[in-house]
Simulated assay, not measured.
Amino acid sequence: MELRIELVPKERKHVISRLMQLYLYDFTRYLDFDVDQEGVFPSYPGLEAYWHSGNNKYPYLIIADGNLAGFALIDRMLRNPEGQFYMTEFFVMQKYRRTGVGTWAAHKLFDTFPGDWKVSQVRANSPARNFWHRVIDSYTQGKFQERFNPMQGNPSQYFNSFEANRLKK
């Protein structure tokens, strides 16, 4: 399978917006929100900022054999003690789950942005928690920390992708 990630230009932001509907649908298992009377989920808050905030937000498409397989939204966190990069959202379409596409894409994105990372999940979303534990553990050779948000109880993993790459060599 040929895999690649593509930074999404402003002219193609509608692709992320449409895939976001599938992503939000998946989340209805864990969070309480509904489609409107037109059958559409609410717009993702702050999505427009990925094309209007300079060099702080990065929207990527995940491509498998020329087909859309998912997306990732990455934020550069400025002067934040929790890290430099945040995997804000990450979505792989069901057809491509458990095929290695998500693991490949996550590792590729970690390599693209060397530094301190934070990856979070909704506490109730055990498939996502299991996925990220596996992905980050293999990427860092177990050198990551996990902390829980004291208010919501959501877990976050913290690691340094630059250090993880040095360990691989």
Rank of each mutant, 00 (worst) to 15 (best):
F162H: 11
T112H: 13
M77N: 13
Y96M: 13
I62N: 11
N125L: 10
S161P: 01
M1Y: 00
P150W: 03
Q152R: 11
F148P: 07
V119A: 07
E89N: 00
V35K: 15
S120R: 09
S53Y: 02
N55H: 04
F110Q: 04
E163W: 06
L47F: 01
I62Q: 10
I74K: 01
L22Y: 03
P42W: 01
A72D: 05
A64G: 14
H14F: 00
L19K: 02
T103M: 11
P127S: 14
I16V: 12
E11P: 04
G115R: 04
T140V: 09
D111Q: 15
R166I: 14
S156M: 06
Y44R: 07
G66P: 14
I5T: 14
V15F: 03
V35C: 10
N67P: 07
P150I: 04
G142A: 15
N125Y: 07
I62F: 05
I62L: 10
V135D: 06
G70A: 07
E48F: 01
T103E: 13
Y25E: 09
P59I: 03
M87H: 04
I74A: 04
G70R: 02
F159Y: 01
P45T: 08
V15C: 10
P127H: 12
H14P: 04
R147C: 05
A128L: 04
T112R: 11
L167G: 07
K10I: 10
D65S: 14
Y44W: 02
T112F: 06
L47T: 08
P150Q: 04
I74Y: 01
G153D: 11
K169E: 10
Y50P: 01
K169S: 10
Y58F: 00
P9I: 14
Y96A: 11
R98S: 15
S43H: 13
Q145S: 06
E163I: 00
F131G: 15
D111R: 12
R4W: 02
K95G: 14
V40T: 03
I16S: 07
H133T: 14
E163Q: 02
S43I: 11
P81M: 11
F33G: 00
S43N: 07
Q37N: 14
S126H: 10
F148I: 14
E6I: 02
K13F: 10
A49T: 15
V119D: 00
F113N: 05
L7Y: 02
R18L: 11
F144G: 14
N165L: 07
L68I: 11
V15A: 07
G70C: 08
G102W: 05
G66C: 12
V101Q: 13
E6T: 09
I62A: 12
L22V: 12
N149Q: 05
F90L: 12
